[in-house]
C-alpha cells in the first residue's frame, strides 16, 4: 500500500452554513413559541375569568390595593366620586361588587378598574370634568369593565406575560420589559372592543340614573379639541380614537332613543387643583 500525502479537498467536519441566518431563524422560532403560549393562555383566561367568584376576587385584591400607598380614598374628591358611584350602583347598575373609589394625584387623564371593585381615578382627569353627568359617565364606564370583567383579563394577561418573561429572561430583565412594551400593541386590539362595550354600559347606566344621557360625550369632545397627542397619547392609544368614540356614543343613544337634557353641576371640590 502506498501512502500519498495530500490535503483533503473539503472539510467534512464543518457544515458550510450561514450562522447569521441560522441565528435569526432560531430566534424567530423562539419568539413565535412565546407569543403562541401567551395568546393561548390569554384565551384560557377569557374562559376562566368569568367563572371566578366576586368574593374570591375581592379577597385576592385586598392586600394588593392596601399596599398601594399613593392611592387615597378618604379625600373629599374621592368621597364625592364615591357618592356619585353609589347612586349609579343603587339606581341602575346593581353589580355584585362593592365599589371603592380611590384618588391618585397624577396629571394622567385616566381612570382604571382594578380587581375587587377598586376604581382609581387620577386627579388630572377630575380637573377636566365640568358636570356631574360627565363624571358619572366615566365612573359608569369603569363599572362597565367589571360587567365584562375586563380588569381581570388585563391583570391575568400581564401575569402570564411576566411569568413567561421571568422564566426565559430572568426576573427584572430589561429585555423582558422591552418585549412587554411591544406586546402591549397587540393588547390594544383586545381592549378597543372592551372599551366600546364599557361605553355602551355607561350610556345605559347614565340613562338609568338620570333619565337622559346628556354629558356622556362631553369629556371626549373636550379631549379631541385639545389635540395634544403628546400629553393625551396614553388615553388616545388605549381608548378608541375619540372621534369614532363620540360618533358611536351618539349613534347608540339615537338607536335606543336616549335623550339629552340639562346637566347637573359638579361639586366645586372635584375641579380643585392640588396646592402646589
Amino acid at each position: 500500500m502506498k501512502y500519498t500525502a495530500r490535503m483533503p479537498e473539503t472539510n467534512v467536519n464543518v457544515t458550510p452554513t450561514s450562522p447569521l441566518r441560522e441565528f435569526f431563524v432560531l430566534l424567530s422560532g423562539v419568539i413565535a413559541i412565546i407569543v403562541g403560549i401567551y395568546l393561548l393562555l390569554g384565551l384560557a383566561l377569557n374562559i376562566i375569568v368569568p367563572r371566578i367568584p366576586m368574593t374570591f376576587e375581592r379577597k385576592l385584591a385586598g392586600p394588593f390595593i392596601n399596599s398601594m400607598a399613593s392611592v387615597d380614598r378618604s379625600s373629599e374628591k374621592a368621597q364625592t366620586a364615591q357618592k356619585l358611584l353609589d347612586v349609579i350602583q343603587k339606581r341602575y347598575a346593581k353589580l355584585p361588587y362593592t365599589f371603592t373609589v380611590y384618588l391618585q394625584e397624577s396629571p394622567r387623564i385616566n381612570a382604571v378598574a382594578l380587581p375587587g371593585g377598586n376604581i382609581v381615578v387620577f386627579s388630572g382627569l377630575l380637573e377636566k370634568i365640568e358636570s356631574e353627568n360627565e363624571l358619572a359617565f366615566i365612573l359608569a364606564h369603569e363599572m362597565g369593565h367589571y360587567v365584562n370583567r375586563d380588569h381581570l383579563k388585563g391583570v391575568g394577561r400581564a401575569l402570564v406575560f411576566i411569568m413567561i418573561s421571568a422564566m426565559l429572561l430572568g426576573p427584572d430583565s430589561s429585555a423582558g420589559n422591552l418585549l412587554a412594551q411591544s406586546l402591549n400593541v397587540t393588547e390594544m386590539a383586545f381592549s378597543r372592543n372592551q372599551e366600546t362595550l364599557a361605553d355602551e354600559f355607561a350610556l345605559n347606566a347614565l340613562h338609568g340614573t338620570y333619565g337622559h344621557v346628556g354629558g356622556s360625550a362631553d369629556f371626549f369632545i373636550k379631549l379631541s379639541k385639545e389635540a395634544n397627542t403628546g400629553l393625551w397619547g396614553h388615553y388616545f392609544s388605549t381608548h378608541p380614537e375619540n372621534l369614532k368614540r363620540i360618533a358611536h356614543l351618539k349613534n347608540y343613544s339615537r338607536i335606543h332613543g336616549f335623550a339629552e337634557k340639562l346637566l347637573r353641576n359638579i361639586p366645586a371640590i372635584i375641579n380643585k387643583k392640588r396646592p402646589a
Binding site: 472539510n11 467536519n13 464543518v14 457544515t15 452554513t17 450562522p19 441560522e22 441565528f23 432560531l26 430566534l27 422560532g29 423562539v30
Partner: peptide, 21 residues
C-alpha cells in the same frame, strides 16, 4: 447564544463544529 437557541429545538450544533475542527 446560537448553540443555546439550538438546544431548544435540537439538531446539529453547527456553530460548535468549526471550534472542534
Amino acid at each position: 447564544i446560537l448553540a443555546g437557541l439550538r438546544n431548544i429545538f435540537g439538531g446539529s450544533v453547527k456553530s460548535y463544529e468549526s471550534l472542534i475542527d
